[in-house]
């Protein structure tokens, strides 16, 4: 239990620092690399929560595909690399106030609602996270949403090609 908590706080600190890096750095490529740290930290948290299948899907889809898409986007839009152009607009202070306000409200609500209720990581939870059960759930209970999401992916693929096509 103690080891899990120590691991959680180390990963959480790395994720928080990297998340601030994503929104504060003045170099677009560094923002993409900070995003990799946040996504890998989230995958590690999923493993702490005994959700191994989701963790590996996170690594494959987010770090493997989405970050590469972002790097292509940075390359194709020739974003400034050395901070010679301002990447932030002039709403910085009001954005910080909004974010801190939402954070305060959320933390207050969460502490009020859940207090110190614990997640019991035991053998029954590890059995739930097996990919066998995830697959059973997707292809039995959630088979309609699964098919709809595959149609949505196809539509997004065709839409992205149609929007970005040079004609």
């Amino acid at each position: 239990m103690v080891a899990e908590n120590v691991a959680f706080w180390i990963i959480a600190a790395a994720m928080a620092g990297a998340a601030i890096g994503v929104v504060r750095t003045q170099n677009v490529v560094h923002a993409a690399l900070f995003l990799v740290v946040v996504l890998a930290g989230a995958a590690a948290q999923y493993i702490l929560l005994a959700a191994e299948f989701v963790a590996w899907v996170q690594v494959l889809v987010y770090i493997g595909a989405i970050v590469i898409l972002f790097l292509f986007g940075i390359m194709l839009t020739r974003a400034p690399m050395r901070g010679d152009t301002e990447l932030d607009n002039d709403q910085r202070w009001i954005a910080a106030v909004t974010a801190l306000f939402v954070l305060g409200v959320l933390v207050f609500l969460l502490v009020d609602a859940f207090g110190d209720r614990a997640i019991k990581v035991d053998d029954s939870l590890r059995a739930v996270g097996l990919s066998q059960h995830v697959a059973d759930s997707i292809f039995r209970t959630y088979v309609m949403p699964f098919e709809i999401v595959s149609m949505l992916l196809l539509a997004a693929l065709v839409g992205a090609v149609a929007i970005a096509r040079r004609d």
């Binding site: 994503v22 959320l106 933390v107």
Partner: peptide
């Protein structure tokens, strides 16, 4: 592990996203 530590981490990430 408490559930709140995960929920507060996620609230922090969400608010960082709002700021961004």
């Amino acid at each position: 592990m408490q559930i709140n530590q995960f929920l507060i981490l996620s609230a922090f990430l969400f608010c960082t996203g709002i700021y961004g």
